[in-house]
């Protein structure tokens, strides 16, 4: 399905600030896999997602989806394949446009845009129907400007937009990290329900180890631009936060700061 083959990415190459974000990283995500991707700050997990989505070009290696090599493809062309939700709730939607206009844009992801009407009349019912899944009452507010919604509402809407036209792979980049704890849980539960219902192939970055263990059928841990752990199925279900922390300590020779605090 999604193959990341021997990918390297270095920022500020040849300068004093040179940082290798990904080092010869390979990852093969199978159809229907629901992968949680964890790692500390600077481990390269967001860079990996951005390289897959085409925000950055890779220095070396290939990004392949369904035997189609996307490596040199521009970001907007790859959108045909990927649905994406970002960490910042402001990034995924257009604040000045209405809920239905945003959805109409998302419904045409990967399609040729023409001079026909931006929203076809019959699409409104489709939007209302889909918005009901979110259980936020947004189905009654189709012509509300998105800028007037809360961060949690916007993130839920972005999630819906990312799957409105079913993506081959759903890429979630710490999409609940910037929300308040209560809203984060709601959006995560919603994500889980949608991914499970539709059997979506998903790559979810998180830095919360509990979430990484609770959700998905496969867990990948990164450190310093490489994968240091890749477990799935039964083995994943038996994982504990302590185990992951120990592994992290071994890999880095230092402690995983935020998680230690979380456990205390």
């Amino acid at each position: 399905m999604l193959q990341v083959k021997d990918v390297s990415k270095t920022f500020n190459q040849g300068t004093a600030n040179e940082t290798a974000a990904l080092r010869n990283l390979s990852l093969h995500v199978k159809q229907g896999d629901y992968v949680t991707l964890i790692g500390g700050n600077g481990s390269g997990k967001s860079t990996l997602l951005n390289c897959i989505a085409g925000v950055f070009n890779v220095d070396q290696g290939h990004i392949i989806v369904d035997s189609q090599d996307l490596t040199g493809c521009s970001e907007h062309k790859r959108a045909k394949v990927f649905g994406r939700v970002f960490q910042d709730a402001m990034v995924g939607t257009s604040a000045q446009m209405t809920i239905e206009e945003n959805l109409a844009l998302a419904l045409r992801r990967g399609m040729r845009r023409t001079l026909s009407r931006g929203i076809a009349p019959k699409e409104k019912t489709l939007f209302q129907e889909r918005l009901k899944i979110l259980e936020l009452g947004l189905e009654h507010r189709l012509d509300t400007q998105v800028g007037l919604l809360s961060g949690g509402q916007r993130q839920a809407l972005t999630l819906l937009m990312s799957i409105l036209r079913e993506p081959k792979v759903l890429l979630l980049d710490e999409h609940t990290a910037a929300l308040d704890p209560k809203t984060a849980v709601r959006v995560l539960e919603l994500t889980d329900r949608i991914v499970q219902d539709r059997q979506l192939t998903t790559l979810m970055v998180t830095h919360n180890m509990r979430d990484a263990i609770r959700y998905g059928n496969r867990l990948v841990m990164m450190y310093d631009g490489t994968i240091i752990l890749d477990v799935k199925g039964e083995a994943k279900r038996r994982l504990s936060v302590e185990y992951l922390l120990n592994l992290f300590d071994q890999a880095s020779g230092e402690e995983f700061p935020d998680q230690k605090a979380l456990l205390a």
Partner: peptide
């Protein structure tokens, strides 16, 4: 319109 308002979102939606 979406390009002017939010280019990152627009690219992620294939624009």
């Amino acid at each position: 319109r979406s390009t002017g308002d939010n280019p990152r979102m627009s690219r992620s939606q294939g624009i």
